[in-house]
Nucleic acid binder design. Structure first.
Length: 255
DNA sequence: ATGGTTGCCTCGCAA
């Protein structure tokens, strides 16, 4: 089972690239983030044409996550539990085959010093609590998505410049580490330990051309999923194309 | 050099 995650930064704009990549990479499950549209505007028919079922939670202009799967997803939940007042479309989770898979768009949190940052920390706290529940079920689980967290210095081109950013400051990294320490494996890192492997490059200042990026999209594997990990990779090819997202897909193969 | 770009029912905001 090949499971991928990709922040597409508008599914409408990215649809030609997305369809081309699905045909080439043939993932069984794809978690999308920042679809930036209502469910009624989601290109369900085009994706069905390539054999993908879609489960999603949409929102106008911002956020929005989807889960695409060749097998029909079951037992879908459309929000991260723990706060019924949170209306931001950032979480969808379902069972595909014998895996539980979540598509996650964790809040960015910038600028630090506004209410955006405590919202990010609270969101990670809710994810931590929910992850504990998921682990108790002992179903092989993959929490995939844009975490907006740079885990280590080697995951950013200029750690000093990013030290106080919401994606990298110590409080953020500690919260992420605490989530991982519940027993998850960073699926990409388990396969490729080399530094400076990025999943995001800012559109500005020639960051892509200079390979000055961030590793902020992650596949967190529960112990039973990690036991089945065969390989994982970042596919940089979509980032090089015209009309690219600022993120590129990462995927893992689980036997 | 506080630059630069993309996407949003755009004229500011989020990333």
């Amino acid at each position: 089972m090949r499971i991928a995650t990709w922040n597409v930064n508008s599914v409408k704009v990215r649809l030609p690239l997305l369809l081309a990549w699905l045909e080439e990479a043939k993932p069984d499950v794809v978690c999308l983030q920042e679809i930036k549209c209502l469910a009624s505007d989601f290109p369900e028919l085009e994706l069905k044409g390539l054999g993908y079922h879609a489960e999603l939670v949409g929102q106008k202009s911002y956020n929005g996550v989807a889960l695409l799967a060749k097998e029909r997803p079951r037992d879908v939940i459309y929000a991260l539990p723990g706060d019924d007042t949170d209306t931001q479309a950032r979480y969808v989770e379902a069972t595909v085959g014998d895996f539980r898979v979540a598509s996650i768009y964790l809040p960015n949190g910038n600028p630090v010093g506004t209410d955006k940052y405590p919202y990010k920390l609270e969101w990670i706290g809710r994810l931590h609590a929910h992850a504990e529940t998921l682990l108790e079920a002992e179903t092989p689980t993959v929490l995939a998505g844009d975490y907006n967290v740079i885990p280590e210095e080697e995951d950013v081109y200029d750690p000093a410049a990013w030290r106080e950013d919401a994606l990298f400051r110590m409080e953020t990294r500690r919260a992420f580490r605490s989530l991982v320490n519940l027993g998850f494996t960073d699926g990409f890192r388990a396969i490729d330990p080399s530094p400076h492997r990025y999943t995001f490059w800012d559109y500005q200042a020639g960051r892509w051309q200079r390979d000055e990026g961030l590793r902020i999209d992650h596949l967190l594997l529960s112990p039973r999923a990690a036991d089945r990990l065969v390989t994982a990779a970042i596919d940089k090819s979509p980032r090089a194309k015209d009309k690219a997202s600022d993120h590129t897909p990462i995927w893992c193969e689980l036997r």
